[in-house]
Design a protein around this nucleic acid. Sequence first.
DNA 1: CCAACCGGGGTCTGCCATAGTA
DNA 2: TACTATGGCAGACCCCGGTTGG
Length: 382
Amino acid sequence: MTARMGSQVMNINLCRTRFPDLPNCFPPAWFKISYLRLCAFSRNHATEAIQKPENAALLSNLSVLGVDIKMAQKRQPGVFRKVATNEEGVAEFLKSKGANRKTIASIISRYPRAITRSYHHLEERWQLWRSIFKTDSEVISVIGRSPESYFRSSDNGNFEKNINFFCSLGLTSKDLHRILTTAPRAFSNSLELNKQMVKLLQDLGVSLGDENPDAFAKRIMTKNAYILIRSTKRIKTNVDFFTEALKPSNSELIKLLQGQGAEVLDLSTDYMKRNFKNISDQLYSLGCTTEEVQKFFLDYPPAFYASFEKLSNKIDCLLESQISIKQLLKKPRILEFSAMNLKNRIKELERVGYDFTKHGVTILDSSRRRFEAKLGKLIEEY
DNA sequence: CCAACCGGGGTCTGCCATAGTA
DNA sequence: TACTATGGCAGACCCCGGTTGG
């Protein structure tokens, strides 16, 4: 217990030291852009009161930047009626961080509200992101992918509180890195929302009798960063669905959620139910019992996730190759390989006279290197 | 030595609804 | 009352190799 507390304190301090001082002066560009903004403001102020027309200077600036104005207008029309915007400042800012023209245009096209942010705000937010990412280009690559995650919130304090909160849970800087890379929105959630999700997971650990609910919750978050951008309602519904459909014991459910099940937890419930039904039906039609079907999903949670068509295709392809459904149930992991890969492997094995009924199917569940080594030996023997 | 078990790694947004706010 | 900030939703795998026990 003491050791755990100690590591938490250490992690908080680690977070603090990773915040470089925010700059207290701004580059010359900032003054230039502010001046331009003032000009734009006074030019349009008179007409603004009458009918709130779209800001002509803004439209011209955006087209110079290469922004897809139609797209931007469709997405956030309100931005276009604002009297003061900072499109040039934002573009300048992103450029100074290494973004190219095309990326900048794409960012503003997809999330126009970005141009309402001030230089100071952006720089402050940048430093927060950089406390997690090592380089500017990592930040740019995430913003380029998902502009909204960077620009949607104006609350930098909340972002920092989230960092501290995650650290206080014992998440490492590597964990934060992964969360910000794969689910950047998590840091723009209100602190309260993130706390609710963590509490839900911890309570779930308690209700399953896990002796360390905090570690249980942490484990699920590190296995699946997406959990933090889902609603607690969805997670609850999915856990209930697992419980009802698979009738697991507490320890089985814990194992499921801490393992591959964590990745399945955030699926939309309807999708998961549909998949479960389709695949169960196929297994029943192949003569499986309810217990076998339940065990199949417990052993191989990705079945919830996989597209039914692909999975079904793979099962058919295995059955056609003298592999029995019972063998598959014993070794569902072979379904993780692509249909193409499985087909090729089976073809190669058939060529050397491999008998699945005699030697089993585990040979299919191996890395490329191991499979090829094994195949080489079989060819020699053959 | 080798089959079998098992965990890890990469990586994922863009839109809509609505309460709150100035 | 228009606009902002924030919550929520649908979408849908594959592969590698360390370790261990016989």
